[in-house]
Simulated assay, not measured.
Amino acid sequence: MSILHSYISRDESTAVKGVLIFLIVLGHNILFTKYVEPVQGMGYLYCFHIQAFFLLPFLYGSEPLTKKRALCYFIRLYWPFLLLSGLLSIGFYNLYLHNNFNLWALFHTWLTGDVNLIRRYCGIQLLWFLPAMFAMSLFKDLYYHSHPAIRLILLFLSIVANFIIFLAIVDPEYYSLQSKIGSIIPLGMFPGISYLIFGVATRKIIAQIKINRGGGRKGFIFLFSFLICSITYFANTLYWNKGLVLIALKVMMPIIFIILLWYYSKNLSYYRMWKELGERTFLIYLIHPFIGYILYGLVIWRHYPDSLVLAAIAQLIMLIASYYFSTLISCTRRLKNIIQPRSAEGMCSVFRK
């Protein structure tokens, strides 16, 4: 099929985003992650849920990377990172920690989008997603509209990036190497290119499924495969503790999971909840951790014990409150065009009467 062809409709894609943002909120739900800490439940989610967000754009197809398209990616993804990281840095690093304003540190963070720098100067690391998605979007379009030799080079670089990332899992001593590279390579390109090979593989597998048909049986195969991977993860966590097993799961699970979501995306699109969450994914992602921190602070203050019921209540409040606030922002045109502009024209409209 043509590289311009999308394998998923707009409604289906929105529903898939809704499922993914639900899981991401769950991964940031401190009451939930503390409750499932003995079985490393948070680590389980991080085997596939955030990665699936990076793989979803490969289902849409791709267009040639022009200056206008690159600028659009920058405005939609990198500008919010610059704005929010700057504000959080002033609020956390300067006002809360009482440090002097460090222009070079802020510029270094802006230039690289490095997760460790973001954590150090902003207090939270969730903003790393924006520069990484920006870089991945550029690499995706560049890959599909380049000479085969360029494609091979990009895939090789993606493999190298993953090798370095996975090396730190096997031997934590190599984490400093991963951190050093992330603090040097600009524009989130190091994490961004690591997703390229997974995205290319995902699109090829889905293309073969579409060509060969036989959907029902294949859907069951992927569902069963994901179940086996999940059992393997918890067995490894509780009994084996093998880094190579975790690496194998981190390679397979994101691809299997996004294919599962793609396969059942039409069914998911029938449910309003998933579509409503999917429509507000970006702002929910930015807002929900702060609501989670407030809830966790209240639980500590009231000395409530860890429980699955409290975790479920917190999940519901985080989703509803972040959705409500994201709706308020979306209804305020100027504020939305400052935080989440869709184009250069949208940004410029902020300064018009």
Rank of each mutant, 00 (worst) to 15 (best):
A105R: 08
C72L: 15
L83Q: 05
L152D: 13
L106P: 12
H145W: 01
F156A: 13
T112H: 04
G86D: 08
H98V: 08
F81R: 03
L106K: 09
A70L: 01
H98P: 06
Y96T: 13
I75P: 02
M136P: 05
W79P: 05
K140L: 11
T66V: 01
A70E: 00
R76M: 12
L95Q: 14
N102A: 12
W104D: 09
N94H: 14
K140R: 11
K68R: 07
P131V: 08
A132C: 14
L83N: 02
L65M: 01
P148F: 09
F107Y: 15
F58K: 02
F134S: 03
R151N: 09
Y143I: 09
W104V: 10
T112M: 03
L152C: 15
L138H: 02
C122Q: 01
I118L: 04
F58I: 01
N102Y: 08
Y93D: 10
L88K: 10
V115D: 13
L77M: 03
A135Y: 07
L130S: 08
N100T: 10
Y144K: 02
L88F: 14
G61Q: 12
G61H: 05
Y121D: 00
F74A: 05
A135V: 06
I150N: 11
E63R: 12
S89W: 13
L126E: 07
L111Y: 13
L77Y: 06
R76D: 14
I90K: 08
W79V: 03
